[in-house]
Amino acid sequence: MLGRPGTGVATYAAALETALVLSTRAPLRIADPSCGRPMDRSPAPARWLRWADALVDRPRRLAKRDGGLAGRDVFRLAQVHFDRHGTLLRLRAPGAPGLVHWTYPLPVRIEGWTNIYTVHDAIPIVHPTLSQIDGVRHRRLLDAIARDADHMLTVSEAARRDIIAALGCAPGAISACPPGLDIAATPHPLPDGLAPGGFLLAVGSVEPRKNLLRLAEAHARSGLALPLVIAGPDGWRSDTIAPRLAACPGIVRLPYVDRPTLVALIAAARALVFPTITEGFGLPIVEAMQLGTPVLTSRGGATEEVAGGAALLADPLSVDEIAAGIARLGDEEELARLRAAGPARGRAFTAAAFAERIDAVHRRLLERHGQTPGN
């Protein structure tokens, strides 16, 4: 996950690593040299033997490498192993047992260690039409993780409720531990044609879950004469969404922006408009609030939880409600209220706050398993 910048799960992994450092831990990374590289091009018989070996249910060994641990093809083999056996691939690591925090639900565990898994949401199970992940397989995977995990974490109470309902697992098997980060605006030019306070901003990939077609229609109905900038790449099923967005007046598409430009856009926007249909957390809400940018987001679920009363809310399925919310962004008194409330709420999601939350979870689990919390 740390090798995939720009995604929400990569941001979470980086935030977790930062939190461990702030907790005076010395986190080790588990590296798989094959991740992010083209598929193996070695001679076919060698490839067949290696992948046939993945069908054998036996532990695999990690090795020490560059101050951490490494195993070639570990994550690919884990997927093959899960599809064949329906269980997690067992790993063995050198040295004394420790705590391993898998930042994404992967079908793998280290034997003898305390294994924690972050399950970001239950969207593929609860809303299968809004996810490209196979909901049936994902349910089987989460069931397997729930059986073997020492504990599961998720990123909001709303996501925790959804996961418990979807899996039928014990409430004590999973905790909500919202992530955190520190974001600050630095001088950086905006894309051509945009001026501070002169645009609304939507952030995220173009996919059904982000609700961009309803947002575009609401923007047109709102009467607020500001362009709507959509910053994010084409995502799942964008081929049916992007052309319709292109035909909408007042829409500016930015399919790719680097991180400094994205931060500059959030800081300069009149407001972030984020009426997504469903989320496990809602990181752009936190980013906007920490930057003092007003937010309009979805009523209900994780987005309302994260907003914590410091944002305008609208039913994401109601174009009229979204349009009314956008219209309220033309009220200077409303904007002033949101600009004051946002940063106060954003302090609940700083790196230091996340470090305290995650440290408490890790200490509790390490002590339960007779391991030293300081390691």
Rank of each mutant, 00 (worst) to 15 (best):
R337I: 09
G280R: 00
G292F: 03
L313N: 11
Q290G: 09
E321F: 01
R299V: 13
V286M: 04
G282C: 02
V306G: 00
D315F: 11
D320R: 14
R299E: 14
V306T: 04
A324I: 01
A340S: 14
D315P: 04
G342Y: 10
L335T: 09
R328N: 10
A271K: 00
M289A: 10
Q290V: 09
A307D: 06
G300V: 11
I285R: 08
A310W: 07
V319Y: 00
G308Y: 04
G292L: 02
S298V: 08
L338M: 11
S318H: 10
L317G: 15
G301T: 01
G301S: 08
E321D: 15
G309R: 08
I285H: 03
Q290K: 06
A324C: 11
L317Y: 14
L335M: 12
G330N: 11
A341I: 07
A271R: 06
L312K: 12
P275V: 08
G301V: 05
A307C: 12
G325Y: 00
E332L: 14
L317F: 13
D315G: 09
T303V: 13
M289V: 05
G292T: 07
E305I: 01
L312R: 08
V319R: 08
E334S: 07
A340N: 12
R337E: 14
L329N: 05
I277V: 14
A327M: 06
G300K: 10
T278N: 10
R337V: 10
R328V: 11
L329H: 03
A302M: 04
A288I: 03
I322L: 06
P284R: 08
E321A: 15
G342C: 09
E279M: 04
S318A: 14
R299F: 03
E305G: 05
E334Y: 00
A340K: 14
T293D: 11
L329G: 03
S298F: 00
A341Q: 10
L312A: 12
A311I: 04
A324V: 06
A327V: 12
A271E: 04
E287F: 00
T276A: 15
M289D: 02
A271T: 01
D331N: 15
M289F: 03
G330D: 09
F281E: 11
D315K: 01
G292E: 05
L329D: 07
T303L: 15
G282W: 01
R299C: 11
L283G: 00
D320M: 13
G280I: 12
R328T: 15
A336E: 14
A340R: 15
L312Y: 12
V273M: 09
G292V: 09
E334W: 01
V306C: 06
L272M: 06
G330I: 03
R339T: 12
V295P: 05
G325I: 02
